[in-house]
């Protein structure tokens, strides 16, 4: 088991975000705020990202994490929250779509 497993359960992203903050790292938090159709992760799920692109958690089954991490770097840089939308109907879907056919909205914000 990896270091994100503690006592048999997965350590959660918000706990990790607080630890990173205490270590003085810049952190962005991405949250699934809306889903339509069959989305892989429920509303409220988190992905936390630091300025070096390290991340924990998930907002999809791995389909759009890359795009969210890229956007997080800009959110950390300018401090402005962003609302991202992913889905098969989206033009970017060919690059970073959800293979399940669902759509999700992800809110990305800087911690602090």
């Amino acid at each position: 088991m990896s270091d994100i497993v503690e006592g048999g359960t997965l350590r959660d992203p918000l706990t990790i975000a607080e630890e990173w903050m205490k270590e003085g790292r810049d952190v962005a938090i991405a949250t699934v705020v809306e889903t339509w159709g069959s989305a892989p992760r429920p509303v409220g799920s988190h992905l936390v990202i630091d300025a070096d692109g390290q991340f924990e958690g998930s907002v999809s089954g791995g389909c759009v994490e890359g795009a969210v991490i890229a956007e997080a770097a800009e959110v950390i840089a300018d401090g402005k929250p962003r609302m991202l939308e992913f889905g098969v109907a989206d033009e970017t879907a060919w690059r970073v779509g959800l293979s399940c056919g669902g759509r999700i909205k992800v809110y990305v914000e800087r911690l602090g």
Binding site: Y107, L111, G112
Partner: peptide
């Protein structure tokens, strides 16, 4: 997210108290 909010939320979770993080999507507060 306000660092104070994150700390308070994590504390509630550790203490097994139900809590809601309320975010205004207009101004991000």
């Amino acid at each position: 997210m306000d660092p104070y909010s994150l700390k308070k939320l994590n504390q509630c979770r550790r203490e097994r108290r139900a809590a809601i993080l309320l975010t205004d999507l207009g101004d991000g507060r």
